[in-house]
Design a protein around this nucleic acid. Sequence first.
DNA 1: TATGAATGAGCTTTCATTCAT
DNA 2: AATGAATGAAAGCTCATTCAT
Lengths: 195, 195, 195, 195
Amino acid sequence: MPRTPAENERIRQATKEQILKAAMELFFSKGYHATSIDDVAKTAKISKGLLYHYFKGKEDLIAALVDLRLQDLLFVMEAAAAKPTPAEQIRHIAEGALEDVRRKPEVFRFYLNLFTQPRLDPVVAKYSQRLMDEQEKQFEVQTEMFTKLGVANPRKRSIYFSSTLQGIMLMFSTYPNTFPLDEVKAQVIEEFCSP
Amino acid sequence: MPRTPAENERIRQATKEQILKAAMELFFSKGYHATSIDDVAKTAKISKGLLYHYFKGKEDLIAALVDLRLQDLLFVMEAAAAKPTPAEQIRHIAEGALEDVRRKPEVFRFYLNLFTQPRLDPVVAKYSQRLMDEQEKQFEVQTEMFTKLGVANPRKRSIYFSSTLQGIMLMFSTYPNTFPLDEVKAQVIEEFCSP
Amino acid sequence: MPRTPAENERIRQATKEQILKAAMELFFSKGYHATSIDDVAKTAKISKGLLYHYFKGKEDLIAALVDLRLQDLLFVMEAAAAKPTPAEQIRHIAEGALEDVRRKPEVFRFYLNLFTQPRLDPVVAKYSQRLMDEQEKQFEVQTEMFTKLGVANPRKRSIYFSSTLQGIMLMFSTYPNTFPLDEVKAQVIEEFCSP
Amino acid sequence: MPRTPAENERIRQATKEQILKAAMELFFSKGYHATSIDDVAKTAKISKGLLYHYFKGKEDLIAALVDLRLQDLLFVMEAAAAKPTPAEQIRHIAEGALEDVRRKPEVFRFYLNLFTQPRLDPVVAKYSQRLMDEQEKQFEVQTEMFTKLGVANPRKRSIYFSSTLQGIMLMFSTYPNTFPLDEVKAQVIEEFCSP
DNA sequence: TATGAATGAGCTTTCATTCAT
DNA sequence: AATGAATGAAAGCTCATTCAT
């Protein structure tokens, strides 16, 4: 008797997750190009063939990871938007971003690396672009928050805020052991979360 | 009739530069992994064999590019150190960095990409490390400047300054057409160059 | 409640036919090598596993198709042999063959393609051989017909007849839209069906 | 000192020929699909890499072979056209074709196999098409010859001639040991080369 | 009878590097 | 100093077939 569709679906999801987990682990530590499909399959303890049963190819793996990342970013943004005051909203963005990088600096590092990929890389560029597009969308929302906060030049303020935040995350993910994240975080919040 | 040794040396230097120029052009636009040795040789209009005569391999090319970059960074730092007052020194660092990224955003982007390379990439990681080491050294010098400037917590201030600067460069190199670099630059200088 | 054995048998036959129909459709249009087992199963709307339940493998599919083809050829030959006079017998062969190719040029094309397969193709060659063997057997029967017809050199005549017929079928199946099959058929019959 | 361009060209041509010869040998005996690039490289006694240095891929090999074939066909046709009378022209076509298949039945067989490839085979179909196109062009020329010969319905006559010729070649290449080519050839010439 | 997840051998192709000249 | 023919390891991917259910 064949497995039930539900059972199959369960197996599918479990295996896909297993594969994505392996891909993450390897991409994060060795990078996309230095990771081979064979590596991923071995790490996920499945055959290469099965990997191709679930993903169209190596590129599909990074596409899936980028999708997950975009969901995460969106999630933080939505949680921020749900806050009652603009000050709290901006504070949530800052804290969300900084706590995220604190927990998994190498993950941030990986996506930043993807983000800074040369624009003509034949495979990776399009995922870099997706991340940039999302960031741009979120930037608009964030500018609106600064407007409501009542600062003088909200667009410029928003840019400066994003730059500072990105810079901190970049620095922290580079020197996770020595960077004084708490202090810096406090200063950011002090500086940007009051009108 | 054989060339003179001096003539030979001139040709050698010219050819090496030609190769490095080609490598830069390609690495900056397509990235290290997507660029093949064949590409570099063709772009430099020389044979693959000759390329291997001057450079040990593909990795040696990126090593040379990183060396050039380190020289550039050092040069800015030395010029800054030569300024009479700490305020001017810090201002020079900020202006040097920002004008550099303004001129060649894709170059900064490339080195930032290298900088954020996963730590276990078997070939690229070590150049990533070199850039990090140099940045750390410069950070110490810069902290000294902030000390002389007389700010309360110079180490923290220096970190915050670096983060901001790096963040701005990252953002500008991502959105070179819309980022208001002049305004932001003015603000940075205002914020960090007075005690 | 279990199915009756008769019911089971009916389902078996229906499924096998479904699979063979799918295989035909795909082999005829894309060819044996370009058709995957997955294609066949999907087209037949059954699972891969079930396909393997009914057929030993991909090769078994082509074996079944060749068997069907041989039956068809045999059928025409037997119908011809049943005709009262040799002239009518030969005429029946010609008409049978030409009407067959008229109806399904791509089918003839496929078997001709199989027929002309290189002799060392590790999987397909043996089916090519079967078709050749059958044709040879039929050729003997046909030569006997020409003998009865009373032509001078019946063997040579039979060969010439077969060649002409095969040539016409080849040409028609290549240019089904422009080839004047009726005219040519009439000429063939005129030329070969009188002593 | 590097090799001279002329010397390089000589090496290139020799190696390319070596590869094409190996490809022919294998394609003719095992078929396109059953022949791997590895087979070809091993037979040509070169590395796989070198094969790709000279040919873009497996498909490029068959493209080259088809080009050679088209040249051969064209050559026969031009030689025929150079004959003074239409009867001699047609005779030359018949003899050219039949002598060619006599010499290398497996070559004809291979190209016929290619010619009869299913129309949707993703790689091979286009070369099949090229052969068909060329045959159609030659058919027009041949029809003109029959017109000059003064037969009643030259187009039909030309079709019938081509069909017969193709049929003979098909039969001979199938049964090269028993097919009475000389006799049949004589009959063809008798039948088609007089007004 | 029926499913589709899972395997693994083998394929085409790329590319850093070497080597004869 | 200079060329480009030649190599070979390793990559991404396909697919006939098997197997647990």
